[in-house]
């Protein structure tokens, strides 16, 4: 048995203090979280942390020797920059271990105001190559970059060799169409998008209608999907909707299909030894909008898998019960290794 000399930090999502506690109990090395406003990309009603809960969360994490990463990962809107700067001030006053930021102006504010603050470059800033990451390091002193889910393992390995910045990748969770930081799709239907309002498909614009087992999803009254009885449903996002995407030649009828992307969840479980070997610093679990039950079960599963991969990478095998536990929580009827494995690239 040959234990790995490297370790990967397991970063779990927390949309509430209850989720934070469960994540830490389940073995997360760090949790990421945000405030109850548009400064973070999961700005859902009733979700996220009040300052009082943040304070208890940070205290608990530090007491257990773990970290809190503070996401301020949307883009400040014209005339409202003060709200985003205030979020950086809160993160600093609560002694968060790092802030996760996408916007260069906000990175500059954090660097100038709090030179000792650890800066992580958010996935929303879409930095996919070493030049972009090194530039952000030179300009703002970023210590870690979260990679968009568009890169293959070979590309990530090469990138790690070319930068001194720590690299964090996603290990599990719902997938976007991989235009992180640039997606404006939902704004065509609702006038709001994740980068401006911190929410994709705002809940006030979503309507579900169940008729005889057929479930219709509407976004601002636009029909974006209709699920047959028993068919797995997905988040009501435009990218995952089914639209008239062609004509069935045998019947001359419109064929409804996924025009952009089929709902799918990323699952990098079986790739852990390779991620470890190439020097990935942190593995992130998507899903601050999910319940503490999801956070606990997914974190515990990835904790067990990571420990096993670190103990003996050469003999690591993804156990069926781990796969079962993760696939139960997947959005859509399939899981994928996403862009990590693209033999044609």
């Amino acid at each position: 048995m040959q234990p790995s000399s490297r370790t990967i930090e397991l970063v779990a999502p927390a949309g509430s203090l209850a989720a934070l506690k469960i994540a830490l109990q389940a073995g997360a090395d760090a949790v990421y979280l945000g405030l109850q406003n548009a400064t973070n990309a999961r700005n859902f009603s009733g979700l996220n942390f009040s300052e009082a809960h943040l304070r208890s969360g940070v205290e608990l994490a530090h007491h257990m020797g773990r970290k809190v990463l503070f996401a301020i990962n949307t883009f400040p809107q014209a005339g409202r920059v003060a709200e985003w700067r205030a979020a950086v001030d809160v993160a600093h006053s609560l002694e968060a271990d790092a802030v996760i930021i996408a916007d260069p102006g906000l990175l500059a504010y954090a660097r100038d105001r709090y030179p000792d603050m650890r800066l992580h470059l958010s996935v929303q800033s879409s930095a996919t190559h070493a030049d972009a990451i090194e530039f952000m390091r030179e300009q703002f002193g970023i210590r870690r970059a979260v990679l968009p889910r568009v890169l293959t393992l070979a590309e990530i390995e090469k990138l790690i060799r070319q930068t001194s910045v720590e690299i964090e990748v996603f290990g599990f969770g719902s997938l976007c169409v991989m235009a992180e930081g640039r997606c404006l799709l939902s704004s065509y239907a609702t006038g709001e998008s994740p980068n401006s309002h911190g929410v994709c498909s705002p809940a006030h614009a979503v309507r579900w209608h169940d008729q005889d087992g057929h479930l219709e999803a509407r976004l601002n009254d636009i029909l974006i999907d209709r699920y047959a009885p028993g068919e797995p449903a997905a988040y009501p996002t435009l990218c995952k909707g089914r639209f008239a995407a062609g004509i069935d030649r045998s019947t001359d009828a419109d064929m409804a299909d996924h025009a952009l992307e089929e709902p799918t969840s990323l699952n990098a479980l079986s790739l852990l030894p390779r991620l470890l070997g190439m020097g990935v610093s942190a593995l992130k679990i998507e899903g601050r909008q999910r319940s503490p039950a999801y956070v606990g079960q997914v974190t515990a599963t990835l904790r067990a898998a990571l420990d096993s991969a670190q103990a003996d990478p050469a003999r690591f095998a993804a156990r069926p019960e781990w796969q079962f536990s993760l696939s139960r929580h997947a959005e859509g009827s399939q899981v994928t290794q996403g862009a990590f494995e693209r033999p044609w690239k």
């Binding site: 309507r207 209608h209 699920y227 009885p229 999910r290 319940s291 039950a293 999801y294 139960r328 959005e331």
Partner: peptide, 18 residues
């Protein structure tokens, strides 16, 4: 997890989603 039940069509929700 409520979203897990929803994906599996075991939890139905209608009306004001907010």
């Amino acid at each position: 997890d409520a979203d897990t039940l929803f994906f599996q069509r075991r939890l139905k929700i209608a009306g004001d989603i907010d």
